[in-house]
Design a protein around this nucleic acid. Structure first.
Lengths: 139, 139
DNA sequence: TATGCTGTTATAGCTAACTATAACACTACT
DNA sequence: AGTAGTGTTATAGTTAGCTATAACAGCATA
């Protein structure tokens, strides 16, 4: 399990995204309870408030419901709501930027496919990158 | 012209990314000066320090060189260095995540193509005119 | 020398994100 | 009633990002 956090985005946002991914992947089904705030906080060594903030986003989006003393439960229709909303957001905001980058770098479908497969394993070694230029060290 | 900033990333990072894009697109060529810190700050209504921070990243990456009293100039070999580095970073870090999202949402190539096209109209960075502000271009 | 453009540094203040610690409120189960 | 699990709120402190304002330092040219 990933215990690491991407430095380019707030933790609570990444937390929200992970739950979303789990719902879309069917790991968490409608009616299921989310992992408890305290559990997640302990597991990932993060402040409970941070976890709560991520969960609250999901509540605000109408995806989960909070039952005090019980837990937070995934609403019925959550997955469908996500498939609509996330698709729209991705196509309108994220994909155009990514697409432009792909064009800019001149990446081929072959390269992209290869990189996508390599995903599950942690890519430790990249051998082929030739750093031809000596780096400057002024400061 | 985009005066808007993406809320999901710090401005200085986005600024750095824009310059990188302009280098890759050939809008800025090696040896060219970057738009001055003060100009950019005024144009985008942003603090000069924020601009400087973005530019400093480029210096740290060995892409541009700073000449006090003159300006910041794109190093020779910058474009090549970028094509290497950005490709590696994108394939290793960004693409796997994006690819997973595409899979998860069940997006088809048709939908992706359509969304990609809808973007270039509002983007404008591809045209040859680098700047709306008339700049001195002698060196 | 004076002006006007560059990059750079210094102070100080604001907000968002995250943290630590603690307490409160509710529910289920024994 | 007691306990242990939930979510929730309160207080307070740290850091990163951004801002405003001002000054300092180097280069080119009239």
């Amino acid at each position: 399990m990933d215990r690491e956090w991407n430095d380019s985005q707030p933790i609570y946002r990444q937390l929200r995204d992970r739950v979303v991914a789990m719902i879309l992947d069917g790991v968490l089904k409608e009616g299921d309870p989310l992992p408890s705030v305290r559990n997640v906080a302990a597991e990932y060594r993060v402040n409970p408030l941070t976890v709560l903030k991520g969960y609250q986003q999901l509540v605000d989006e109408g995806l989960v419901e909070s039952k005090r003393g019980l837990g937070m439960y995934i609403n019925t229709g959550a997955r469908n709501l996500l498939l609509q909303g996330e698709r729209r957001r991705f196509l309108a905001e994220e994909w155009p930027r990514v697409h432009a980058t792909i064009q800019r770098l001149g990446l081929t479908p072959q390269e992209l496919d290869a990189a996508a497969k390599r995903r599950s394993s942690s890519d430790g070694a990249q051998s082929k990158t030739a750093d031809s230029k000596p780096r400057k060290e002024e400061r």
